Each structure stands twice: as structure tokens, then as C-alpha cells.
Computed example of a mutant assay.
Amino acid sequence: MTIAIMGAGGVGCYYGAMLARAGHGVTLIARPQHVEAIERHGLAFEARGTTETLPVKATTEPSGVAEADIVLFCVKSGDTEEAGRAIAPHLAANATILSLQNGVDNAQRLQDVIGRPVIPAAVYVAVEMPGPGHVRHHGRGELIIGPGATSIAIAASFGQAGIPTEVSENVIGALWTKLAVNCAYNALSAIPQLPYGRMIAVEGVRDSMADIVAECRAVAQAAGIAIGPEIMDTVLALAPAMPAQSSSTAQDLARGKRSEIDHLNGYVVRTGERLGISTPANRLLTVMVKLMEESAGL
């Protein structure tokens, strides 16, 4: 397959690396510093204590999606519409577009902009970009994708590339489950700039997480989406599995970048307001992160 990755940060570079290793043609559309490093040295892929260099194409231009069979759309949630408009004129007629983004509504927002189907995907991977053109994998890597004309074939090809991929009719439920996990971790990791292991060890954090998740479940239920009671087990299992991982929100703020908080805890707050559900814990975290962004001039 020929695969283009729009917004090749940590998530995009990880999946690009895995697919390139399996022999697929990969083009990364990324920021200039990453493109320059990849053009000079290749994509540095670090996992399990070893680093390999992969030769992949890289460009800053949205036209990099041209002729791709599959486009993995990995931009930050706040950039969905702008990036969608940028790639729309260059998409091949038969291209399949998957949204690999945080939040629950990006696929629909992108679909509205480009005027063609977008397959939503729930992404479970822990990665970071420690330097230009360098992706570091901390754990997991599976995908849950929605149904589509090519979803089964994509799942098979991705699986052969070492990316466990499930096709689910209830991908929206998976996205809401992931949203609840993100709401529990992202801001709480970002505000003190602590990795998950140290963060969750602080007294009161687990109880605060339970409050956050309870609000997410209540809002989801009001929206007609079921999040099972086992969600807290999922939340609490993440920190011991990835004790050194920091949230994407923490990484954004540490790098002086605006976060996706409006599409995480903030989305729960807005949806709760629309449905008449109170969300004080999620509101407070949203405001705290926004105050940090304001203080940093972001």
C-alpha cells in the first residue's frame, strides 16, 4: 500500500515507522524541523531500547497525500478543519481516510470539510518525539477502526505490519472510553508535569480520577453511548503499565504548544452543558490547563 500521514508527530511517525518496516510506501507530512531531519538521516525509530533508521519520504506540503491509497490523519484536534481543507484538493479518488486523533468528533468534522467518508479510529499507543525526526515508543500500538469499504483489508495489512487492528461497529463507544481515560490522565499529568507513575501515587489523585470518569460516563450515557463500569479498572491499569509516560497535554505544554484540552475535558464540559449534566471536575481541569496556556502566552 501507499500511505500518507498528515500531521506526522509522535502518533503519525510511530505508525509510519511500523508500516515502512513492513515494506509499504510511506510519506510523512510534518513540520519543517522533522522533515529536514528525516531527509538528512531518515526516521529514527526507538523501541525496546534499540533505535533503527528508516528511509521514508517526508514533506511539509499537503500535496504529499496525492496518490496515497490510505491517508492517516493525525493532526491536533484544533487543526482538523484547516488541515482537512489543505489536503482535500490532493486526495486520490479512491483514497481511504482514517482519523487517528484524540477526541470523539474529529472524523465527522473532517468529513464535513472534505465532503467524503472518514473512518474514525481509537488509537492506543504511548509515544513521544524526543527530537526532530526521532520517535520513541513506550508501549501498546493497537487500533480500533470503524467499518468501511476497505476496513477489513486495512486491518489485515496493518496486522501483518505489527499493528493489531480491530474493525468495530461500536467505534464511537471505543472513542468515548478512550476519551474518559484521557480526561483522567492528561490534565492531571500536565499541570504538575509528572509522569503517570509519580502522578497517580499522590494522595487524592485516584479519587479525583474517579470523579472525572463518573462525569464522562454520565455525559456519555445522556448522549446514548454506554461506557461500562470496568472503565475505572482500565484507567487505573494505565499508570503501572506506563509509569514513565507523560500525557500528550503535558508534552504540548512542555514544548510551548497549545494543548487539545478543548477536545478532551472541555468536550465533556460542553456536551454536558448541552445535555444538562454537571461536570465540575472536568471543568476545573479545563480551566487550569487554559490558565497555564494563558500564562505561557500560547
Results as ranks from 00 to 15, higher is better:
residue 7 G to Q: 08
residue 11 V to F: 02
residue 15 Y to N: 09
residue 15 Y to C: 04
residue 18 M to G: 01
residue 18 M to Y: 02
residue 19 L to R: 10
residue 25 G to N: 10
residue 29 I to S: 10
residue 30 A to S: 15
residue 35 V to K: 03
residue 38 I to G: 02
residue 42 G to I: 05
residue 46 E to P: 00
residue 47 A to K: 04
residue 48 R to H: 12
residue 50 T to V: 12
residue 52 E to V: 04
residue 59 T to P: 00
residue 62 P to Q: 08
residue 63 S to M: 06
residue 80 T to C: 05
residue 91 L to W: 09
residue 92 A to M: 06
residue 100 L to A: 06
residue 110 L to M: 08
residue 117 P to N: 11
residue 118 V to N: 05
residue 118 V to S: 04
residue 127 V to Q: 07
residue 129 M to F: 00
residue 135 V to G: 03
residue 135 V to T: 09
residue 137 H to D: 04
residue 141 G to Q: 10
residue 142 E to I: 00
residue 149 A to M: 13
residue 159 G to N: 14
residue 162 G to A: 13
residue 163 I to S: 10
residue 166 E to N: 07
residue 172 I to H: 13
residue 180 A to Y: 10
residue 181 V to D: 02
residue 185 Y to D: 05
residue 187 A to H: 03
residue 195 P to E: 00
residue 197 G to E: 06
residue 201 A to T: 00
residue 206 R to C: 00
residue 208 S to N: 12
residue 210 A to L: 01
residue 212 I to Q: 08
residue 225 I to V: 15
residue 233 D to E: 15
residue 239 A to Q: 11
residue 247 S to I: 07
residue 260 E to G: 11
residue 260 E to A: 09
residue 261 I to C: 10
residue 266 G to T: 02
residue 271 T to K: 15
residue 274 R to P: 00
residue 276 G to S: 04
residue 284 L to C: 10
residue 289 V to L: 04
